[in-house]
């Protein structure tokens, strides 16, 4: 704390706490969160620089080297049933996996935030309608939505994203709505209303910026959920279509060879596990960080 005295006025006190650096300092004190962040960074880097990192093409088959074990013939992690380099496929697989996770969550957020804010702030009829719609969406298992979409259109990355995004919509709406309702009762929002600030301004300037933190936490939890969901869809053949690798469809094809060549199932499994774990650890860390009672 530093005190600078201005004549005739209360001294200006700087409490050097919840500034931006303060966040990082507090974040750093939570090893699981730091590990989670590191894991997420690794996955993102791998996905972005896949063409540079992958030793070989993920789709080029070498029929002379089918299902070779790790370390054989220059294949660090072996090859799959079509003789494609497993490591390269894992690296490229991170792209579609991450894409589904991030885009599905983004889709859910983009739809949920305006709906949630409006129903939390205005309550009344808007709220009723929004919540009933959310209940209806929630009543359909997301698998059903995904199967439906795949049946009507055809299985594709885009449809996986839409299905998973819709599946996450009710949860995200509820979060945004709860935040908006809590913020609406805060004195600073009441003050804005009393002052005659327009609703539009209140929503954009007071409500939205103050709910970013909990939304970020929600995103860090729903990305791994979407990743797991996409793996499940791929496993059922409804997800990303071969030959494009995704960890889910790698896992799906590997089941045939589980008995003799377990590594081609184990490796994408581990990749999915570690990635979701990393996001979840990061999410828990962020939650603690933004929780005022933990400060």
């Amino acid at each position: 704390m530093s005190i600078a005295t201005v004549p005739g006025a209360e001294p200006v006190v700087t409490i050097s706490t919840p500034s931006r650096q303060g966040w990082w300092r507090r974040f750093r004190r939570r090893p699981p969160a730091v590990i989670g962040l590191a894991g997420v960074v690794v996955v993102v880097v791998v996905a972005v620089f896949a063409p540079l990192l992958a030793p070989q093409s993920p789709v080029a088959s070498q029929f002379g080297h089918v299902l070779v074990g790790p370390g054989v013939a220059g294949h660090i992690l072996g090859t799959d049933q079509l003789g494609r380099d497993e490591l390269s496929r894992l690296i490229y697989g991170s792209q579609s996996t991450l894409e589904v996770g991030v885009l599905a969550t983004l889709l859910a957020m983009v739809l949920a935030v305006p709906i949630g804010i409006a129903s939390g702030y205005y309550r009344g009829a808007v709220d009723m309608v929004a919540m009933r719609v959310a209940d209806v969406v929630l009543a359909f298992p997301f698998l059903l939505i995904a199967v439906g979409l795949a049946a009507i259109f055809k299985p594709s990355l885009q449809n996986v994203i839409i299905a998973l995004g819709l599946a996450q919509l009710p949860g995200s709406i509820r979060i945004a709505r709860a935040e908006a309702m809590a913020l609406r009762e805060q004195d600073f929002v009441q003050a804005a209303i009393v002052t005659g600030v327009r609703d539009r301004v209140i929503l954009f300037r007071h409500l939205f910026p103050n709910m970013l933190s909990p939304l970020l936490v929600q995103a860090s939890v729903s990305i791994p959920a979407a990743i797991l969901g996409s793996a499940l869809l791929s496993f059922l053949g409804l997800g990303v279509q071969p030959p494009t690798p995704s960890w889910g469809n790698m896992l799906a094809t590997a089941q045939t060879y589980l008995y003799n060549d377990p590594w081609i199932a184990i490796l994408p499994g581990i990749a999915i596990f570690l990635t979701t774990l990393a996001f979840n650890l990061l999410g828990d860390g962020l939650r603690d960080l933004f929780d005022p009672s933990m400060r």
């Binding site: 805060q186 004195d187 600073f188 009441q190 003050a191 009393v194 002052t195 005659g196 910026p209 103050n210």
Partner: peptide, 20 residues
């Protein structure tokens, strides 16, 4: 327009200002 003529001060100096 009338709101500009009637203003309010709140009890809690912590929650009555937008932290951002």
């Amino acid at each position: 327009p009338i709101r500009s003529q009637i203003q309010m001060v709140f009890q809690d100096p912590y929650s009555s200002l937008d932290p951002r």
